[in-house]
């Protein structure tokens, strides 16, 4: 068991999370392999976002947040005192529910992640901007208007821009919290195709309320209920033959 530790990309060990006295994650453990897509589903308020944000320590800023247990990425404990959160977040990118581009140009949105690292060489930035936008399948739509404000893009384009922005700093893990919930069906399917492509190079964790989406894009699915990880396994298996009654009730739409 212990020898296996390094073969997993992500490892969560006995995580408990509290907001004040409110326990919102209860003894969750999980292994995730590299280059897979893992979906988290469950009713509203069950702790999916909190769980996802453990991997880039985005909960740290919340005043009354407290956790027990450990999270490992590539075998390193990311809550270790020696870890710098800024460094961690360059390895673990995040895409949010609502597209949140900076009120800057398209170009500067992507370049930002490099600029804060002190990288300002124009030809290098040009290269990264182009590469990231191509990866996010947005390049063809915006290549002639990189100087335009990102806020002028459509919602779906903005979300792909946010994905490109996350990719620009070359993370190995990407966290997506309901990335398509604010988008129309066409933009949503574009994002889904994109996730499928990105899987080749990245390990992706995605929170979604959309069962079909989880079924389409993910290899593994975890079902959370009231802070507990009720069931975690192959997506196909979990959707066709859930081993827990609560999972079955949820995916068949009987509650949630």
């Amino acid at each position: 068991m212990k020898d296996n530790k390094n073969s997993y990309k992500l490892q969560v060990k006995n995580i408990n999370v509290y907001y004040g006295h409110n326990k919102v994650l209860k003894n969750v453990s999980m292994h995730i392999e590299a280059n897979t897509v893992t979906a988290f589903i469950g009713p509203s308020g069950c702790g999916k976002s909190t769980y996802l944000r453990l991997f880039n320590r985005m909960n740290d800023y919340i005043g009354n947040f407290r956790k027990e247990g450990d999270v490992f990425i590539d075998g390193r404990n990311i809550y270790d005192k020696k870890i710098e959160v800024e460094e961690l977040r360059k390895t673990v990118g995040m895409v949010f529910q609502k597209p949140n581009p900076f009120p800057k140009t398209i170009y500067e949105n992507i370049a930002y992640g490099l600029r804060i690292q002190g990288i300002n060489k124009k030809n290098l930035l040009d290269e990264v901007v182009e590469h990231s936008l191509k990866q996010a399948v947005l390049w063809d739509e915006v290549k002639d208007e990189l100087k335009k404000s990102a806020l002028e893009l459509s919602g779906g384009q903005q979300q792909r821009l946010c994905i490109a922005r996350a990719l620009a700093v070359e993370p190995s893990v990407i966290l997506m919290d309901e990335p398509a919930s604010a988008l129309d069906p066409i933009s949503t399917s574009k994002i889904e195709e994109l996730i499928f492509e990105l899987k080749k190079n990245y390990t992706i964790l995605i929170v979604t309320h959309n069962m079909h989406q989880a079924g389409r894009v993910s290899d593994k699915t975890g079902f959370f209920y009231l802070g507990e990880l009720i069931e975690f396994g192959d997506t196909k298996e979990l959707f066709t033959n859930p081993s827990n009654e609560r999972t079955e009730n949820y995916i068949t739409g009987r509650f949630g």
Partner: peptide
């Protein structure tokens, strides 16, 4: 959401404050 975007990509507080 802009703060989160900035922190999420590895900015320090200072960078978030003055660059975003």
């Amino acid at each position: 959401s802009l703060r989160e975007a900035s922190y999420g990509i590895g900015s320090t507080r200072f960078q978030t404050a003055f660059k975003v």
